[in-house]
């Protein structure tokens, strides 16, 4: 998997600016509820794309950190009220849990399939546990965990320092968009740094990096924690959007969806998975409005077809297609030139 065509640390600033302006004026043209949700999903996809596409760490349980972010925010905001600290905790707790689980896995040299199982099992444990926390016995401070029904009606985000002014509607849309764009820039910065280059080296050849003297488990644990924090941020934003958290944030469905977005968008790119989250997320919402075709049927079919036909995902493949097309144009032009020369020669001969 070469990164050719995707300069590791290059941002196309002009495209970035155009997109930022478009996102900024979007509330003038449409309602912001759905775009907010799509941006949150996009952020979630970005967190997995960073870890899986660049460091080569596959997680079948990325929803664990998304859910931890959501639950941490809900529980902390019940107990604290003012939302700044809960917001920061919603990044810190998933990052810490990811660091612990990551260290357990990577220092134990667990890789590929076993990595998949371990991450999956962690998510399942959280899901089972949260589902079983109905009743008064399960409470953290003022927050009842609520089992299958989840935690409703916690205080949502407010302007930092002013608990009476809540952020919602269009203002909340801007909070999410700024988080998304900032997270994207942070990812780019990570990838352009020496740390990011070492990660790509690990993806390409772990043994070689180890022999060059890099502490591979430490690098992997670090990126696992970063991706966990980012997923936690997405989860926290989701909790504030939905205004309720239920154990389904830990569900297999959530994990499957983010995997599908990343694989469809393309491994080794950031924009691809983010765009795929928006497109497939919209498709999911559209399918939710009707009952003839089942949502998971469509998602499943897309995943199977992408793995079979374009296993590198859309973004890298489209670059390859464009290059192939350009080459075929060049070849055609050369052939035409050769033919013309031959005809000219033939005419000149007699």
């Amino acid at each position: 998997m070469s990164a050719s065509g995707f300069g590791v640390g290059r941002i196309r600033w002009n495209w970035f600016a155009v997109l930022a302006v478009l996102l900024a004026v979007l509330p003038l043209a449409s309602e912001t509820n759905t775009p907010t949700l799509l941006a949150i999903w996009s952020l979630f996809a970005l967190s997995l794309a960073l870890m899986w596409g660049y460091a080569g760490i596959i997680s079948f349980g990325h929803a664990a950190y998304f859910g931890l972010g959501a639950y941490t925010y809900a529980i902390a905001s019940f107990n604290i009220g003012e939302s700044t600290v809960p917001f920061l905790l919603a990044l810190a707790v998933p990052a810490l849990v990811a660091a612990i689980i990551g260290a357990m896995m990577f220092y134990g040299r667990i890789s590929d399939v076993y990595l998949g199982v371990t991450t999956l099992v962690v998510t399942l444990i959280l899901n089972r546990f949260m589902n079983a926390t109905a009743g008064d016995a399960y409470r953290i401070g003022n927050a009842r965990l609520g089992g299958f029904n989840g935690i409703p009606a916690f205080p949502t985000l407010n302007v930092p320092g002013d608990p009476t002014t809540q952020i919602y509607g269009t203002a909340y849309y801007y909070v999410v968009i700024v988080s998304l764009l900032a997270a994207y820039l942070i990812c780019r910065w990570i990838l352009a740094s020496a740390f990011g280059r070492a990660l790509i080296g690990i993806r390409e050849n772990e043994l070689r990096m180890e022999l060059l003297g890099y502490n591979v488990p430490a690098y992997k644990t670090a990126i696992f924690a970063v991706a966990g924090a980012m997923a936690g941020l997405a989860g926290c934003l989701f909790a504030n959007w939905a205004e309720i958290v239920t154990p389904s944030v830990f569900g297999l469905g959530q994990t499957a969806e983010v995997l599908i977005w990343v694989i469809v968008g393309g491994l080794g790119t950031l924009v691809g998975p983010m765009a795929a989250a928006v497109v497939l997320g919209s498709l999911k919402l559209a399918l939710g409005h009707q009952t003839t075709i089942d949502n998971s049927l469509v998602l499943g079919a897309i995943l199977v077809l992408v793995v079979l036909l374009i296993p590198r995902g859309f973004a890298p493949s489209s670059v390859a297609w464009r290059r192939r097309f350009a080459q075929s144009q060049v070849r055609r032009r050369q052939a035409r030139g050769k033919r013309r020369r031959r005809i000219a020669l033939q005419e000149a001969e007699p």
Binding site: G300, A301, L303, V304
Partner: peptide, 10 residues
Amino acid sequence: WGLSLLLIGL
């Protein structure tokens, strides 16, 4: 995994 989702839908 995709197949599993597909079968559930079906």
